[in-house]
């Protein structure tokens, strides 16, 4: 049984020609953890997620996934470990939903699968992802015609079709109404609790973050300011300074988890 522990060791990064940097980011993410990266806009949440996805290469330090450094994996191997769900996607042409979800399997296709028809196992992985996200009925629709909530479920289906132990989600509930947001979060919750997937997400809603996540890293100006179990981090007085805002920390009446409200 391989372990898909993610280990980040003193990672630094700066965008070329920009003052925005990440400095001295370290942390361990064990398998089956749901981690949220929070912090004000421009704190570096998305950049850290991009580094973990291999979209950017750290200027300093290293990121390990499982036994090896992230950059030692080939593109295909990496796509079998980590799946990245973008915040939004606007394809230039009217792709069918099924084609979009099939892209999740692309990294696992061999040479002959790419030329001919993919084998049954690939098609089953796509079907399972469609069923698991209740998007099977949308399969023949155009991705560009979907509503915001539907599109987000299809993107989740795409990353599930990748069948990776680790999911990286960039603001998964941004622009969703409460009903669709709750639905998506509970789907992710089942993936973490029932399939022991590791979920790492950039997130900005402090009211709901404590209800679902196990761990929280709070970033500010490219550094980690607070790091730990969600319930502990959300009670820290430093959060006020970090967001420049007063918070009331409540306990959710039925879920018995911390909820932050701005005062």
């Amino acid at each position: 049984m391989t372990s898909y522990h993610v280990s980040i060791d003193r990672v630094g990064f700066h965008w070329p020609g920009s003052s925005e940097t990440l400095q001295e980011i370290s942390g361990e993410i064990t398998e089956g953890t749901w981690l949220a990266l929070i912090g004000p806009n421009g704190a570096g949440k998305t950049t850290l997620l991009r580094l973990m996805a291999g979209l950017e290469i750290p200027s300093l330090g290293r990121i390990h996934v499982g036994q090896r450094a992230l950059r030692e994996y080939s593109h295909q191997q990496r796509a079998g470990l980590l799946a990245l769900m973008p915040q939004a996607m606007r394809p230039a042409f009217e792709l069918e939903v099924r084609t979009v979800v099939e892209m999740g399997q692309l990294g696992q296709l061999g040479f002959w699968d790419r030329i001919g028809r993919p084998r049954a196992s690939h098609r089953e992985a796509v079907d399972e992802a469609l069923v698991a996200t209740d998007t099977y009925a949308l399969a023949k629709r155009k991705f560009t015609d979907l509503s915001g909530g539907e599109a987000r479920r299809v993107l989740l289906a795409m990353v599930l079709a990748q069948q990776t132990p680790i999911l990286l989600l960039d603001e998964p509930i941004a622009y969703l109404d409460p009903g669709h947001a709750k639905d998506l979060l509970e789907r992710i919750e089942r993936l973490v609790r029932e399939q022991r997937k590791t979920v790492i997400m950039a997130y900005h809603d402090l009211t709901t973050v404590g209800l679902y996540c196990d761990q929280i890293w709070a970033l500010e100006q490219g550094r980690i300011r607070l790091q730990g179990a969600a319930a502990e981090v959300l009670c820290q007085p430093e959060l006020k300074a970090l967001f420049g805002l007063d918070f009331l920390t409540l306990t959710h009446p039925t879920r018995k988890r911390p909820v932050l409200l701005w005062s």
């Binding site: 606007r90 892209m103 790419r114």
Partner: peptide, 24 residues
Amino acid sequence: LIPYLKTMNALLLGDDVAHGVGVA
């Protein structure tokens, strides 16, 4: 070109998504 037909579909989703699903 032929081995890249499906890769072209992935590139339609944008460079970041294509990278995410394992495209060089």
